[in-house]
């Protein structure tokens, strides 16, 4: 043990060891991400040009290098042509963007006053409220979506409550509708909206508000002209944190949405697991990536500021 320690100490003292250490710390996580995060996208792109076959793996190679091959290049646009010709895919892309955008806006409407209230609370209350926001984030996402199934179902709590109050005669269809999907997305993603908003609102200099009030601004004027513009970074970060993952959401539409609730994440999942058409799933993923890549770059820029 002692000897090992001495050897390590010796190594420390050499500039070469410094170089090795530096390359090790940078290189290992870098290599990992290149191999398991970046390179896979290239493979998705490659397979999106292949033809599905019944085999293992279920797609053709792109190059046929055997001597008697007429066409050595087997890449095809067929998957993309199919995606543009079938209305189903257009509908699911636009529906995903619409549902994600509206849910993001609802999260902002509910999350902003909450973040504002938390930021203005006294130190002890603030810590407790923050913990209450973070707590659901740590508990199972799947089970929190599941909780809504019990509430919204035909024999669920909400229906039986409304029925017992005499407000309805027959159970309302709430589960397996788009409204349930909106509820599920807002419910599970709202902590991602509140936390960045809180971070900017908490840092804000309150003397600006006093100054605006002294100069005769009404509270709502102060809010529109001072608070809202200053909290823009939080609004942008929070909105992107909700919008980007919500576009590709699979679990929420699969559990809460109807059979016709076509979101692109669900379409991709079914194309892969139900139809076993890997090349088409890869083409859907490529187009989804094209949609989210700009918001992701915006998010990274907002992170670096």
């Amino acid at each position: 043990m002692n000897k090992a320690k001495q050897t390590i100490k010796k190594l420390y003292q050499q500039p070469l060891a410094d170089k090795i250490w530096r390359n090790f710390v940078i290189g290992v996580p870098y290599f990992w991400l290149l191999l398991f995060f970046l390179a896979p996208f290239a493979i998705v792109l490659k397979i999106s040009f292949a033809t599905p076959i019944v085999a293992l793996p279920p797609f053709t190679p792109l190059l046929d290098l055997s001597a008697n091959a007429d066409h050595w290049l087997l890449a095809t646009w067929d998957n993309y042509r199919f995606l543009t010709e079938d209305n189903l895919y257009w509908i699911s892309y636009f529906k995903s963007i619409k549902i994600a955008a509206i849910s993001t806006f609802i999260c902002l409407l509910i999350g902003y006053p909450m973040a504002y209230g938390i930021a203005r609370a006294t130190a002890t209350t603030r810590n407790i409220l923050l913990m209450l926001v973070i707590l659901p984030f740590w508990t199972s996402f799947l089970l929190r979506v599941y909780a809504w199934m019990g509430l919204l179902g035909k024999n669920g709590i909400v229906n039986s409550l409304l029925f017992n109050l005499g407000l309805i005669n027959a159970p309302l269809q709430m589960l397996y509708t788009d409204i349930a999907v909106y509820l599920g997305i807002v419910y599970t993603y709202i902590p991602f909206m509140i936390l960045p908003l809180y971070a900017t609102l908490e840092k804000m200099d309150t003397s600006l508000h006093d100054a605006a009030a002294d100069l005769g601004a009404k509270p709502w004027q102060t809010f529109i002209d001072v608070t809202l513009p200053l909290s823009k970074p939080g609004i942008i970060a929070g909105s992107l944190l909700v919008f980007i993952p919500a576009i590709g959401e699979y679990v929420i539409p699969a559990l809460l949405g109807g059979i016709d609730s076509l979101m692109i994440g669900r379409t991709l999942y079914d194309e892969f697991f139900v139809n076993r058409d890997w090349p088409l799933a890869a083409a859907v993923a490529t187009l989804l990536l094209v949609i989210v890549v700009i918001p992701i770059m915006l998010f990274q820029r907002s992170q670096q500021e």
Binding site: F37, L38, F41, L268, A285, V292
Partner: peptide, 24 residues
């Protein structure tokens, strides 16, 4: 590039990450 790819998995839709890793 490193700064670019380190934060991307945070927001990347799960279906893309899952499918791309499987194909890898």
């Amino acid at each position: 590039v490193f700064t670019g790819i380190i934060a991307a998995p945070l927001v990347m839709p799960e279906v893309i990450t899952g499918l791309s890793l499987l194909l890898m």
